[in-house]
Design a protein around this nucleic acid. Structure first.
Length: 552
RNA sequence: GCGCGAUUAGCUCAGCUGGAUAGAGCGCUGCCCUCCGGAGGCAGAGGUCACAGGUUCGAAUCCUGUAUCGCGCGCCA
């Protein structure tokens, strides 16, 4: 609808240039927005004001010329000049009926667009070290990454979801040593558990499981045994992680192993490429990357003087490999405590000849768990985080995912476990899902009463004239642009806010008007309207990974 | 010390990339069930958008500075 108006305005602009009522020939981008105040119509444009300088005329004069050129456009019921030079447009109510037909035609694809033109995008998220179960913070990253991926898909990008497995560094070696120590402990030895070892109970479980599956491990030399423990630990923890994520409704297209970069000599090869480009140099026995050339505040070490690569080295290789795979846009989801690493990674990307913005890093802030408004933490024993699994089991995947997406991902989040479980309008998840269930309930009712259901293309919608009905239709029309905005900015919370507003408008409508009334035409039209609401609620919830239940 | 991010209603937060009278939820106050699910809805009170300058037709939004808070600054991962 907005695009249609945009074309009309562009045409009018050309008309003005042609008949010399405007002279500059400068065609600005035509900005159209939905004004906050309904009195200003359905759409408004600041075009006249942005042209004022080039035209050397007052905005209101320009607006008058433009409005004259728009002439009697049949789908516009009113065009007004207001304030400093806004042009306000009110559309014929019948225009909004088309939105309902559009939704009915596209069903679950309403809101999808070609905005991304099939460009390949990779979203890498979670990527937690395979050294223990996922905790609540990982959960937020998971929910955000998955929703961003879904939103990008809806906006017409070709998206791949990837998990980067840090299976090469010291962290997994520590996991191996921790398991080995617990294993010896279980065999009756007295051991000193390493200070940096992983304290969690799950280490004991892993040790016990390993002895059971392969008792010969105890006979190995220390070094071999630890290696065995490491491999066993990583394999098992990854299975847990995958299961936790699956129960959270998330699957990945690819699990990318850091170790595989070394196995395939990728790190060495990619580092050689950087050296060829003169981006790295040796100093004090170490190999440095010249990240300061691209905005970092100091150069970074790739290979330490003892010859071993830094974590940064494999990260560089990994990101080079991502672009080699043909992704035009690469999105990383990180914990906000890593924000200091953004400049150096952008520097790498820039050094490779890409735009720094081809890599986008989403920083995920902390989750504060609350219970009835009071901070909730597990016992303070080290290694004893609140796991994602416990929370999902307590409040359910839907509530959990919705809450994780309610705020901008870079701002901290209060997550009240009791509130998330509540079956009332206090609870935003419930409130939105309930709106969907309510529409379904009305439809069930209609069927029981033998009311014929509306058939798309064959409905008289002229009885949809109440302000709240037009308001709903207009809001449904804004869904596709909401998805595009969320995709452009990687901001799933926009979809959440959209949902809350749509649900609120629907509940309000429901409370004022009955859908199933005596007049058959009105009933049909209203059923058609709320079916549109139902479809959009379901589509938006799906993008967030939240179910749209038919009854609750 | 340097860098990054924040600062909007009592609380938690939005604010559509610079637009018109700054919004929502919670909490508070007062209302609405002869009604398809009241598991809802309506109304009210509540603001110097941290502060001071600047940019322009126009600033919560962009720039500079100040204050407060948080985080990051390893040849750790």
């Amino acid at each position: 609808m907005k695009d249609r108006l945009r074309r009309q305005i562009s045409d009018a602009l050309q008309t003005c240039f042609a008949n010399d009522t405007l002279h500059s020939g400068v065609v600005p981008e035509v900005q159209i927005e939905v004004p906050g105040n309904p009195e200003y119509g359905d759409f408004s444009s600041n075009l006249a004001m942005t042209m004022a300088r080039a035209e050397k005329k007052s905005p209101r004069q320009i607006a008058e010329v433009l409005v004259a050129a728009l002439g009697g456009c049949e789908f516009l019921s009113k065009v007004e000049i207001a304030g400093p030079g806004f042009i306000n447009f009110t559309l014929m109510p019948t225009c909004w009926y088309e939105v309902l037909d559009d939704i009915a035609a596209k069903r679950s694809h309403y809101g999808f667009s070609q905005f991304g033109r099939g460009r390949r995008v990779q979203v890498e998220f979670v990527s937690a070290n395979p050294t223990g179960p996922l905790h609540i913070g990982h959960g937020r990253g998971a929910a955000v990454g998955d929703a961003v991926a879904s939103i990008l898909q809806a906006a017409g990008f070709d998206v791949q979801r990837e998990y980067y497995v840090n299976d090469a560094g010291n962290q997994v070696a520590t996991l191996g040593r921790s398991i080995w120590m617990r294993l010896r402990e279980q065999n009756g030895e007295t051991v000193v558990f390493p200070e940096d070892g992983y304290q969690g109970e799950y280490i004991r479980e892993l040790a016990a499981k390993l002895i059971e599956e392969d008792p010969s491990v105890t006979a190995l030399e220390e070094e071999e045994a630890v290696k065995r423990c490491t491999a066993f630990g990583v394999d098992n923890v990854l299975v847990w992680i995958a299961a936790d994520l699956k129960d959270f409704g998330i699957t990945f297209d690819k699990w990318f192993s850091e170790q595989s970069l070394f196995d395939r000599n990728m790190v060495k090869n990619e580092l050689a490429k950087l050296a060829d480009k003169g981006l790295s140099y040796e100093q004090n026995g170490a190999l440095w990357l010249r990240t300061t050339d691209y905005g970092d505040d100091k150069d970074r070490v790739l290979i330490k003087s003892d010859g071993s690569p830094t974590y940064f080295a494999s990260d560089v290789a990994y990101h080079m490999e991502k672009f080699d795979r043909g992704f035009e846009r690469v999105i990383d989801v990180w914990g906000a405590d890593h924000h200091g690493y953004v400049p150096r990674m952008k520097a790498v990307v820039a050094g490779l000849g890409h735009q720094p913005d081809d890599l986008e890093v989403l920083l995920i802030q902390m989750v504060n768990l609350l219970r009835d408004g009071k901070p909730y933490t597990m016992g303070k024993r080290s290694g004893n985080f609140v796991t994602l699994r416990e929370v999902v089991e307590e409040v359910g995947s839907d509530a959990c995912r919705f809450y994780f997406l309610m705020r901008r991902s870079d701002s901290q989040l209060d997550f009240d476990l009791e509130l998330a479980k509540r079956q009332s309008s206090d609870n935003p998840v419930f409130y939105v899902q309930y709106a969907h269930a309510r529409v379904c309930s009305i439809y069930r009712n209609a069927e029981e009463q033998g009311v014929p259901l509306p058939k798309p293309g064959d409905i008289d919608l002229s009885s949809l004239i109440l302000p709240e009905e037009l308001l709903l239709a207009k809001y449904l029309a804004r869904y596709p642009e909401t998805v595009i905005g969320a995709a452009q900015n990687c901001e799933p919370h926009r979809v959440v806010y959209y949902l809350q507003e749509l649900a609120a408008q629907f509940h309000s409508y429901y409370n004022r008007q009955r859908v199933l009334v005596d007049d058959p035409a009105t009933t049909q039209a209203r059923l058609y309207l709320i079916d549109g609401v139902r479809t959009v609620l379901a589509n938006a919830l799906t993008l967030l990974g939240v179910k749209a239940p038919e009854r609750m």
